[in-house]
């Protein structure tokens, strides 16, 4: 009987690979899901992958389901969730990050771009229009008679948490203070 399996070390990484593969495949080829839903589907697939592999380890390698096994499983779940969170943010950065967009515009322009040229391609008006559209589509804000109101308050809660974190880490509520 063994109390430890080498395969257990890599379970979370294998699960992440399953996650990414399922996410890309489902978005691109199969179910034509929205980007966010495909990320959730990938996460669930990777999550099940962890339990399948752990079940395999237990059933074929005769490892005891003891405290050590449980703690390693918990650690693997934490690792997987953290890595999945990183992947989710990577996807989100590609979708929404201003710095990535600016870099992309510069990548497309071999001669470089002046500030005015960057703003011709990507500016505050574009950002606001896209953000408003996204917020409305997700129900975070609603538009009534040309004015905007809070809908679902999830984003508002996230905004308030971020402001608290700014106060703790940076000593101010906004980068412009």
């Amino acid at each position: 009987m063994y109390s430890f399996s080498y395969l257990q070390i890599f379970v979370s990484l294998i699960a992440l690979v399953i996650d990414i593969f399922v996410q890309i495949f489902s978005f691109r080829f199969i179910l034509r899901l929205g980007l966010l839903k495909s990320v959730y589907l990938g996460f669930v697939a990777g999550f099940f992958g962890i339990f399948l592999i752990e079940f395999y380890i237990v059933s074929t390698r005769l490892i005891l389901i003891n405290n050590n096994f449980i703690f390693i499983l918990i650690a693997n779940l934490v690792i997987y969730i953290s890595l999945e969170y990183c992947y989710f943010n990577f996807v989100n950065l590609g979708e929404t990050a201003r710095r990535i967009r600016i870099l992309w515009e510069l990548c497309d322009s071999k001669e470089g771009l002046s500030v005015a040229e960057i703003l011709e391609r990507y500016n505050a008006k574009d950002i606001i229009e896209k953000r408003l559209s996204r917020l409305i589509n997700h129900g975070q804000i609603i538009c009534k008679d040309g004015r905007y109101y809070i809908g679902n308050s999830t984003m508002l809660l996230i905004a308030r948490i971020i402001v608290r974190m700014k106060l703790i880490l940076l000593g101010k509520k906004s980068e412009f203070e």
């Binding site: 201003r98 606001i128 953000r131 996204r134 917020l135 804000i141 009534k144 109101y149 508002l156 905004a159």
Partner: peptide, 20 residues
Amino acid sequence: SPSLLIVMKIAKSTPNGFGK
């Protein structure tokens, strides 16, 4: 974040709403 800035400004304008 622009999205969070937009949401905070809209929240502060309750109940009158915020114009584009």
